[in-house]
């Protein structure tokens, strides 16, 4: 065995790369009610093989990582990193129990998901994909999708690898960093950019044109759209968007909003309001 030269209970760079590779399928066995449990165990398997020699120990470790788990998938890399560090200590007889490992996982998964969801799904993906879509529609063709694909995956893979390595090196120190409020600041910053860009997308990307004219006297017709554009361009999209936010706040399902917008468009066009 090639591992004879090193300490038996130490993860190699190769193990960490394998774990990093497996992270890319973490959510594949998403199930109710245990969520990403099989995924987390799948990611940990190279470490379990390295750290535990006997079949009984391996069985115990695998079973321990099959408990319910759910977090924002990219944050799983950070949790995995810390778990690797703790498992290594556990395997080498340090004072880290299996219950400690589970407690750390449960403690981190909820709070990390809370800060990572607005960053990745709420800010980075909408902004990057809207930018890519605008490139695609303004004549760059296939360049748009390429920008999205590369922009997303370079950021994702870099983050996942960095988070896993950092979590492994720092171990439980990670929790001190997280409680210092740095992540909350990052989430706040991302939410600001997200809100700002959403505000910018509303007038740029919603196409609503009024057809109707306003007759003020026998001789003068005002095109209603021109009148609105004089006030603020994009006023109608703004009103529509705020209306949808208000309805979402009052627990109207997005599906009904989509149906509602469709009906408004069809009826409005039939009546000659929109063009």
């Amino acid at each position: 065995m090639s591992a004879t030269t090193r300490h038996p209970g130490e993860l190699t760079l190769g193990d960490q790369l394998k774990i990093f590779g497996r992270s890319g399928l973490e959510q594949a066995a998403w199930n109710y009610p245990r969520l990403q449990n099989l995924g987390f165990c799948y990611v940990m398997i190279p470490a379990i093989q390295r750290l535990y020699a006997t079949r009984d120990q391996q069985a115990a470790a695998a079973t321990r990582h099959l408990t319910s788990f759910n977090t924002m998938p990219y944050m799983q890399s950070l949790i995995t990193g810390v778990t690797l560090s703790l498992e290594e200590q556990h395997a080498n007889g340090a004072a880290v129990s299996a219950a400690d490992i589970n407690a750390m996982k449960v403690g981190m998964m909820g709070s990390l998901a809370g800060v990572a969801d607005p960053v990745w799904w709420g800010t980075w993906r909408p902004i990057l994909s809207a930018f890519a879509a605008s490139l695609a529609l303004s004549g760059f063709g296939i360049g748009g999708p390429l920008v999205f694909f590369l922009g997303w995956n370079v950021a994702r893979l870099t983050f996942r690898w960095w988070a896993q390595r950092w979590g492994y090196r720092q171990g439980l120190n990670v929790i001190d960093y997280l409680s210092s409020g740095i992540l909350q600041k990052l989430t706040l910053g991302a939410s600001i950019v997200g809100m700002f860009v959403m505000g910018a997308l509303v007038p740029r990307w919603t196409r609503v044109q009024l057809k109707a004219t306003l007759t003020t006297s026998a001789h003068t017709d005002y095109a209603l759209q021109k009148l609105l554009d004089q006030l603020v361009p994009g006023l109608l999209p703004l009103v529509l968007t705020l209306g949808c936010v208000w309805l979402l706040r009052h627990h109207v399902k997005p599906l009904w909003l989509l149906v509602g917008v469709l009906v408004i468009s069809l009826v409005g066009t039939w009546l000659g309001i929109f063009q």
Binding site: P126, G194, M195, T206, P237, T241, C244, P254
Partner: peptide, 20 residues
């Protein structure tokens, strides 16, 4: 018309997620 207008629902979902 609908294809151009439906985007507001997505904008609203993202805004609703982050707005405070």
């Amino acid at each position: 018309v609908a294809a151009g207008m439906l985007v507001v629902v997505s904008f609203a979902i993202v805004i609703n997620m982050m707005a405070s």
